[in-house]
């Protein structure tokens, strides 16, 4: 192949490309469709991660429906207060910006804390394990530990700890809710950032059974309920529940009253080292 062919090839293809692009740009002018300029502006305020947390196929579509008035301004769970205010300004409305939500894992039953009922050798997925006998842990409500939530997280806000439980990084969590969606056990919940006190357990078994399967299970002893004002907490189906509406936001309860340590304040683990390992 001589150099002439090369030059001709480059020139002809370049020429064709130029010709077509010129034609297209002319056509673009002729067929220009006026779009609401606010869509573009709102799109600039959105995170642009296209995570789908809002329920629409991407940030662009969300911007479109917000302008059309079909979606709430704070419908994007990822955007921060600032962005919501900016969007509100673009649309000329006040935003009641909902509080930032953070994913919380409602289980402390890692490999160490829970007893095992069997070795699970099926496909390494939470969903698979949930279909097939509910994984290897004795507690049927526990985290299955295959990290489907970590894989679902598009913001690198989660990782699997050595103990086999997902850890959520508060400062990176955007509250999109993807992890809660994929969890077959439904033990990841979305909570407002200010909620600090949680019952980190979903076990509905009675005291005897709960005790047997996990050292950090709620054994429904009711100590916590007796130690707070009426209505702030209650027992329901063998599980203590915090009524945040009445309880308020402050984590004021002395959590060391809880014998198993399932009631805890975020960031302040009360029971650091479990006394003994449970045997199945």
């Amino acid at each position: 192949m001589d150099i002439n062919t090369l030059i001709i090839a480059i020139a002809s293809m370049g020429g064709l490309g130029l010709l077509f692009s010129a034609g297209l740009s002319l056509a673009e002018k002729k067929f220009y469709v006026e779009e609401d300029p606010r869509i573009e502006k709102i799109l600039n305020e959105l995170p642009g991660a296209n995570c789908g947390g809002c329920g629409y196929p991407g940030c662009a579509k969300f911007a479109e429906v917000v302008v059309a008035g079909e979606a709430e301004i704070n419908g994007c769970p990822v955007s921060d207060d600032e962005a919501r205010k900016a969007i509100g300004e673009i649309l000329g409305v006040d935003v009641d910006s909902g509080e930032k939500q953070i994913a919380r894992l409602m289980c402390q039953g890692g490999n160490y804390e829970t007893a095992k009922k069997a070795e699970y050798a099926g496909i390494k997925s939470c969903l698979g394990a949930s279909y097939f006998g509910g994984g290897e842990k004795m507690c049927e409500y526990a985290c299955l530990g295959f990290g489907e939530c970590v894989e679902a997280c598009t913001f690198d806000a989660m990782y699997m700890s050595e103990n086999g439980l997902p850890v959520i990084l508060d400062d990176k969590c955007t509250g999109c809710g993807k992890c809660a969606e994929v969890c077959p056990q439904d033990i990841i919940e979305m909570h407002p950032e200010s909620h600090k006190l949680f019952v980190f357990c979903k076990n509905l078994d009675g005291a005897k059974n709960a005790r047997k399967v996990c050292i950090k299970a709620c054994i429904a002893c009711g100590i916590c309920v007796r130690n707070v004002e009426e209505g702030e907490m209650e027992m329901k189906d063998n599980l203590a529940i915090v009524n945040y509406d009445i309880y308020g936001k402050e984590a004021k309860l002395p959590t060391d009253k809880c014998p198993t340590g399932c009631l805890a304040i975020i960031g302040k683990p009360i029971v650091d080292e479990p006394a003994e390992k449970v045997e199945a």
């Binding site: 293809m13 064709l16 490309g17 077509f20 297209l24 056509a27 673009e28 067929f31």
Partner: peptide
């Protein structure tokens, strides 16, 4: 190149 340009044109139209 031809096809892609034409499709763009149709899309705009």
């Amino acid at each position: 190149l031809v096809i892609a340009s034409l499709v763009q044109l149709v899309e705009m139209f």
